[in-house]
Design a protein around this nucleic acid. Sequence first.
DNA 1: TTGAAAGCGCTAACAT
DNA 2: ATGTTAGCGCTTTCAA
Lengths: 337, 337
Amino acid sequence: MITIYDIAKKANVSAMTVSKVINRTGRISTATRERVQQVIDELGYIPNSNARSLVLQRTHMLSLLITDITNPFYTTLARGAEDAAHLRGYRVLFGNSDEDYRKEKEYVEAILSTRVDGVLFAPAGDRSLPHLQQLQARNIPFVFLDRTVPGITSDVIAGDSREGAIELIRYLIELGHEHIALVNGSSEVSTARLREDGYIEGLKEAGITPDPSLILRTSYRDFSDDEGLERLLSRSQQPTAIFAANNMLAIGVIRLLRKRGLRVPEDISVVCFDDLDLASAFDPFLTVIAQPAYEFGYQGMQMLIDRIEGKLSPAAETMILPSKLRIRTSASVPPTN
Amino acid sequence: MITIYDIAKKANVSAMTVSKVINRTGRISTATRERVQQVIDELGYIPNSNARSLVLQRTHMLSLLITDITNPFYTTLARGAEDAAHLRGYRVLFGNSDEDYRKEKEYVEAILSTRVDGVLFAPAGDRSLPHLQQLQARNIPFVFLDRTVPGITSDVIAGDSREGAIELIRYLIELGHEHIALVNGSSEVSTARLREDGYIEGLKEAGITPDPSLILRTSYRDFSDDEGLERLLSRSQQPTAIFAANNMLAIGVIRLLRKRGLRVPEDISVVCFDDLDLASAFDPFLTVIAQPAYEFGYQGMQMLIDRIEGKLSPAAETMILPSKLRIRTSASVPPTN
DNA sequence: TTGAAAGCGCTAACAT
DNA sequence: ATGTTAGCGCTTTCAA
């Protein structure tokens, strides 16, 4: 391994001088700078960032902790996060909790051990509290990614889950639906609660009394509560539309509906949060509230880095990104019978 | 920040003793071990992995360098890589070159600076040579991910691009196609060359003379050569089927075909390499040679770690993963007219 | 403008 | 079974 001393020796200067050349700090005569640079290039010297981190107490590493790498929303978001970090000279350590507190705990420990400079964090749910407290105790800044956790104040980048849900419900009601079911994520997740709020608010707005038995709570990661959906569908008054709280739930729901011989949207309409990117580009089918996933990552990282570099006022900041209703064909007027 | 000295002091032992407790090395009396552990827990001490890396000359970090994070093949692969690494106590630093040599170069430099223990590497193409040489010069082991680069010998995990292509062509020929076009990636990429070989071999096998003007070479990342496709389609003898060398190309091709009013598969059949995961689950449309993306990542990381930990014989190893023809509806018998 | 000394937090090697 | 010393590769004083 080539060290700074190898360069120093060969260029006939001290290690300090080499360090200054590399970091462009302090004053150096042009002559020595060039001589040193020459040797650096010649030997292909690349500084050891571990050693540097150790003395600087800064790693220039950021962590992105998400809950489902399979979800295109997060894939696109990861891209945005990477781009922003890269542009500002940071590297990104990814973590994927799979909505699992145990895995999340392991990642947080790895984060602590790596001494990353900050975390863009989509917590698995409210029980992520201790993990966040651990970060706070160690003064590692983090930005909440869409989901927040009660009891913790920090910067947040988010969409407007409540408003988006209202918009989706309004659209269904305009189409003529009155019996709308909600297939939601876990109530331990803040966005699931907000989407449920919006769902209820949207119904009330239209003078419809929300029916709690029309709400199914499962996991954002994948829909597997077959019996729950079964129950929903076999009600005397079958719902004519389903609002899935995210894209993965929508896919699960639609597959199950199809398996049971129900056509979408002829027999039942389906709408959801978050787009499917590739699948939608390929076949524009699902009507969704699309959130700007790339921006979530990009702006979230910007905010995190601004915080780390002291470019933000001390107060926690919140940035809400706009979402957009994309009307396609998975929802139509309810069947008349 | 809590250091090993804080623990040592509070537990009334030396730093070495604490180190031994943490790493379960050397002999320690049960009494002191427990006392030390107690203090560690109490203070929530987590070792600084930078300091450890510095002395150990091992970071327990691996890098996964891929070419298109948007492609579900790589997303799934990344998951597999993460899982394998995590299981064996390594963290993964992701890099996304976007098939761009310049970005790749930056990532390689970051890799060198981070002193990762190894790299699972899908090179952008043959001109990645200097980057790989840099890794070799620094003794950083790497495993080729599907693509190899002439002039470099190293471990490789790959699919059988040539065989897969032959299988796809055979299938099309069975359906009755004789005029089959190839929309390929860049010829700087080894898998693109192999798929082209397979395409030609498949045709020859059936007694069809390959027509070079039926081959279009563009980029794996996305299809944008509209004029090229235009030219293909406006030949006196229009191809009745298109073999897209990967999934992203297939999507681009199909979108363009649709825009021009051509139905798939009624007017023209399309098949490709690599599945679409989510999109396919949702709507099983595209007929593909599916490669086990997760296994690519999982086994690739295993191989890399085995290499790093000296569990492999010195000779470079090659592992070929089987692919599978998944017949769906995007290819059918050619139109009769 | 340049360099010497010290130390970031940890562990290998060698005492005791 | 436990502790001392030295040093991983770098940068921050501070002195020359």
